[in-house]
Simulated assay, not measured.
Amino acid sequence: MTVRVMLISPAMNAALREARFAGDAVLDASGSKAARLAAPLVPAADRAVHGPSERCARTAEALGLHSVDEPALRDWGLGRWAGDRLDEVSAREPEGVAAWLADPAAAPHGGESLLDLCARVGGWLDSLDAAADGRVLAVAEPSVVRAAVVHALLLPPQAFWRLDVAPLALTELSGRSRRWNLRTGRPLLPGAGH
């Protein structure tokens, strides 16, 4: 069976602008406006889901999707670092940040390791293989999109740090478990690379 998974990263918000470990930051006015402008460019799907964050839910709504919450698409669980800026955490816990960036099994923040994130997202992605052929559209946090690509392409976990996911970008995976193809980051904003 073949499935097409279309991952859309949510619109911009203050947490992204400030390089914060998001927590559950909402969309700001410019993010909401950008998502509404992108709505006509969203591809058709047989089913739509979104990560449980406010940002994903509000982006899906602004894109005009009738999507359901998918808990497996929650943002990377970064424990006590949630809501802090990267520079703040780096100043406070330089050894912890260094370990987190170097070791995919490290979780100095008390949350999920990179390996745990990739396994969770990969489990969701592989579960779609058991479903009927079709097109699944998911609004998911950038960390989830990056983990999906790492899992789908059987990349080493360290490749996660080399993948950039812009707000309102479309990443497409097609295939099935252990045999995915990738189409990367088509912007959903009018005039942005079309």
Rank of each mutant, 00 (worst) to 15 (best):
residue 1 M to L: 09
residue 8 I to S: 09
residue 12 M to Q: 07
residue 14 A to P: 00
residue 17 R to E: 15
residue 18 E to L: 14
residue 19 A to N: 15
residue 29 A to G: 12
residue 34 A to F: 00
residue 34 A to C: 03
residue 35 A to E: 04
residue 37 L to Q: 11
residue 39 A to E: 04
residue 39 A to W: 06
residue 43 P to K: 14
residue 44 A to I: 00
residue 44 A to D: 07
residue 48 A to R: 14
residue 49 V to T: 02
residue 49 V to N: 01
residue 55 R to A: 12
residue 56 C to K: 09
residue 60 A to F: 14
residue 62 A to T: 02
residue 67 S to P: 07
residue 83 G to W: 10
residue 87 D to A: 15
residue 89 V to A: 13
residue 95 E to T: 09
residue 97 V to Q: 01
residue 101 L to D: 00
residue 107 A to H: 09
residue 108 P to V: 13
residue 110 G to F: 12
residue 116 D to E: 14
residue 120 R to E: 04
residue 121 V to L: 05
residue 122 G to E: 06
residue 123 G to I: 05
residue 126 D to Q: 08
residue 136 V to K: 09
residue 137 L to C: 05
residue 144 V to I: 07
residue 146 R to P: 01
residue 148 A to E: 03
residue 148 A to M: 06
residue 150 V to I: 07
residue 151 H to S: 14
residue 152 A to Q: 09
residue 153 L to G: 08
residue 154 L to D: 15
residue 154 L to R: 15
residue 155 L to N: 02
residue 157 P to C: 10
residue 157 P to A: 13
residue 159 A to D: 13
residue 160 F to T: 04
residue 160 F to G: 13
residue 160 F to W: 11
residue 163 L to I: 15
residue 165 V to C: 12
residue 165 V to K: 09
residue 169 A to D: 11
residue 170 L to I: 10
residue 170 L to M: 12
residue 171 T to C: 11
residue 176 R to D: 08
residue 178 R to K: 11
residue 178 R to S: 15
residue 179 R to Y: 14
residue 183 R to L: 13
residue 194 H to C: 03
